[in-house]
Design a protein around this nucleic acid. Structure first.
Lengths: 210, 210
DNA sequence: TAGATTGTTAATCGATTAACAATC
DNA sequence: TAGATTGTTAATCGATTAACAATC
């Protein structure tokens, strides 16, 4: 699918383009120029054109970009046209919150299973999904074509669980555990380190306080 | 506090240094060289030395860095020595999950109040903190020296609520709403856009699938 | 003193911005 | 055709890496 490697800086900006184009689409706007988008998004028009041209020429000279078409293309690039099957490992507050957040499903990220070591909650349901014991994880992953594991477990167990999951055939991790996973290169890891984010905010508050 | 502006790239790496140094400290390790840290963290030793030297010379030639001292200094730089008073706006699943996550308190981020428009949950408690109606927010923020507002509300209301909160004297936002807040320059915003993160993972899965 | 390792300058690399020819 | 705006090359800027003199 890729010709040359696209930098992560570019990829990080794609969901934001996608969001703004979705809004324009919902407003019924048909076309947008890089300059107009630049004004709304507060990035340079040059960057928008450069970013998009990593993936092909989506625009037309003298016209700009067709909003609906570009929205669709970026969705395609982001892989949102195909469904992803997810499991959540760790049914604590955060795990439950993610399961209950419907918008992920709308984008094709379907929670298929929930796993937890706590026997007390095993068998209970979260939004209709049964919480299962960890022992069932291997079979479940293999049988249900699970490609993404969401790790909402303490960092002490995250590394070992991730290693297991790799051996079961998991392709990517959405990692909320506060630790760096070391997995084979072909396995994708997207970290959400909430406390790092909060510390960054703290730094910026302190450095702008004077 | 700052002499010259430090780039956000450097600041984003500080919490990670802090985490690894904390681990080394807990293991009872006294000193570490940039090369040793480089091996553990998988970044270049050069980058570590450059990053740290933005804030001063914490090391000693021929010795390296004292783990405990450096850990303390980075904590100080990140502003973790002083307490922050937070409110959560939006007591949905995600808001509740954050309140229940104790580790933030350990770092000096104290949840003082929770606000929600849903009358049914107003008056209930989450980890001992009463859920209050939005009408009480202004007085609460002013009287309790609140500096950070955590926005776990839908994007439709986030912009208006943020604007209100700025007028009440809030200094920073930890924004989980899927929208870009436009606030005065001196107000700090740290975004956690979960669906953007998930889309990035999706892209990386698709582009490494072949 | 000799060895180790920092702090810092210089070189390189990559990402962003500017400019403009191509073209709708 | 004239005007607008892209796609793309060139210039600039900033961040990362390499190198090494300073120094513990």
């Amino acid at each position: 699918m890729e010709d040359k490697e696209i930098s992560q800086a570019v990829i990080s900006r794609l969901p934001r383009y996608f969001r703004y184009l979705g809004e324009l689409k919902d407003e019924g706007i048909e076309r947008v120029s890089s300059q107009e988008l630049s004004d709304i998004m507060r990035v340079t028009a040059s960057q928008i054109r450069q970013d998009l041209n990593n993936f092909g020429g989506f625009g037309q000279q003298g016209y700009g970009y067709n909003v609906e078409y570009l929205y669709g293309e970026i969705g395609e690039i982001l892989g949102l046209h195909k469904e992803h099957n997810l499991i959540i490992v760790g049914a604590g507050h955060l795990g439950q919150a993610l399961v209950n957040y419907m918008n992920f499903e709308r984008r094709g990220f379907i929670f298929r299973g929930i796993f937890d070591i706590n026997e007390k909650i095993q068998g209970t349901q979260i939004r209709g999904i049964t919480v299962r014991p960890m022992q069932e994880m291997e079979q479940f992953v293999r049988e249900n074509d699970i490609d993404i594991a969401v790790l909402t477990i303490p960092k002490t167990s995250a590394v070992a669980v991730a290693e297991q999951l790799v051996s079961y055939g998991i392709k990517g991790f959405w990692n909320f555990a506060h630790i760096d996973l070391h997995v084979p290169e072909k396995i994708q890891v997207e970290n959400v380190h909430l406390s790092d984010s909060l510390m960054k905010l703290s730094y910026n508050l302190a450095s702008h306080a004077e």
